[in-house]
């Protein structure tokens, strides 16, 4: 009954457990992620330079600039993984964070 059977051999049916989200990023995902980080840096720079010409200070932007590392200052570990309480070694890939391409996640708890 080739081709007529209802059984369709898919990865999850044959093997059981199938991880749909790979545990690490591909190098192309990493590249695009770096571009996004740089883009956010650029937006913040534009805002603060435009405001400094007028001589005004916005507290939130100043705080970001003092606390958040720029893309080139970040370690690879912080760029591509985040702290996760329930994971082995307390780290998981940043691509497991919901909406990870549209949120900023740069710093992690000290010591982790």
């Amino acid at each position: 009954m080739l081709g007529l059977s209802a059984f369709k051999p898919t990865g999850s049916l044959l093997g059981g457990l199938l991880w749909k989200i790979p545990y690490r990023l591909s190098r192309h995902q990493k590249y695009r992620h770096r571009q996004r980080l740089r883009h956010v840096d650029k937006v913040v720079d534009t805002l603060s330079s435009a405001l400094s010409k007028q001589g005004v200070v916005v507290k939130g932007i100043e705080r970001w600039k003092s606390e958040m590392p720029r893309e080139d200052e970040m370690e690879a570990r912080d760029k591509y993984t985040v702290f996760a309480r329930n994971e082995r070694k307390y780290r998981k890939g940043i691509h497991k964070v919901p909406k990870w391409t549209r949120v900023s996640q740069r710093i992690n708890p000290p010591g982790y």
Binding site: R36, H39, V40, V43, V44, T46, L47, S49, A50, L51, K53, Q54, V56, V57, V58, G60, I61, W64, R102, V103, S104
Partner: peptide, 21 residues
């Protein structure tokens, strides 16, 4: 116009927008 309140709003959505002066 460049002003602190507009800058604050753009800052809140900085991951979604492209900005130039």
């Amino acid at each position: 116009p460049v002003s602190p309140d507009i800058a604050g709003m753009i800052f809140k959505v900085k991951e979604l927008v492209a900005v130039s002066e």
